[in-house]
Simulated assay, not measured.
Amino acid sequence: MKDEELARRLRDAAGAHRPDRERMLGRVGRGMAEGRPAARAVRPPRTAMPWLRVAGATAAVCGVLAAGAFAVASAGDGSPRGTRVAAPPHSPAPPSSPAATVTPPPALGALRPEDGPLWTDGAVDPHSNAYWAQSDVTLRTAAPLSSLTVELRIALTGGVNSTGSWRSLPEKDFTVSASEDGGYLVYRWSLRAGRTVPAGTHTFAGQYNHAEGARDAAGDYVTAHAVRVSGQRASVGDWFGPDH
């Protein structure tokens, strides 16, 4: 059969064909009712699995190392958490505090209880007890004084601390201080400018607590520096204790 004849027959058959519309619609409806088959899960190729396992292990190791570094940086240095503070090499030692200055007591012969019209005496008050004491300074002057400074020094033996002071002269005539200096509790009375100390006998007293028991006052002493109204100067001093 020649090609032309075959082509003609095919065209004739195609022209004579009439599609069954109802049958076609039925097949389409049945296909839609049955639904599509479930999609299958797609697994990665087996060759990719080792790489995923290596990546996961690497991430875990990095996490452990990071946590360890954070803990080291945060522990015990007092700095904000997570901040590493490195101590400088060969840090110099902090300077030591200077030792407290101790004022040596004057030599026994350096204190004289009488100088011209001025005289003084120091003694522990008889009303003192096993926990508390009062040191009395008696000052006598035969002439008025235009300037006067009385300084009572109580050695800082066990438990010594100030509890107050007083003087028999008018309070408004003096400035008063109590401080620790050179190993002593120091009471200082200074006559104010323009005031005068009259001739007579006057008392200055310093009070303090101390450790339980009989306190040895042999290291305590008093000094007084005065200027008479006439302009002449005088200085006196005395030790406390039973052998003063």
Rank of each mutant, 00 (worst) to 15 (best):
R233I: 06
H210D: 04
R195P: 03
Y221P: 01
A93K: 14
G194I: 04
P19E: 03
T201C: 03
G26H: 05
G183K: 03
V197R: 05
P242R: 15
H127P: 02
G15S: 14
S96Y: 03
P88M: 14
R8Q: 12
G237H: 06
A205T: 04
G206V: 02
A48W: 08
G82H: 02
S146A: 10
Y187K: 01
A199S: 11
D125V: 11
D238P: 10
G159T: 00
A100T: 10
S190E: 05
V137M: 06
S162I: 00
L25N: 07
R9N: 06
A48C: 05
G206H: 01
T47H: 11
T203K: 13
A39F: 08
A142I: 07
P198G: 12
A143C: 05
R46N: 08
P89Q: 08
V186S: 01
F70V: 08
H202S: 07
P98C: 06
L65A: 07
G159L: 02
V124A: 14
A7E: 10
R23Q: 07
E180L: 00
D115I: 06
D220S: 05
W166I: 05
V61A: 11
V137D: 11
S165W: 08
A48M: 12
T120S: 07
G159S: 03
S96V: 15
W166Q: 08
G122Y: 12
M32Q: 07
R81M: 06
D136R: 09
E171P: 05
A39R: 15
A100K: 09
Y221T: 02
G159F: 01
A211K: 08
T101Q: 10
D3S: 09
P80V: 00
G63I: 05
Y208K: 01
G63Y: 08
A39K: 12
Y131N: 10
R18F: 04
A224T: 02
A14I: 13
A48R: 10
D216Q: 11
P50Y: 04
L52R: 15
D125G: 12
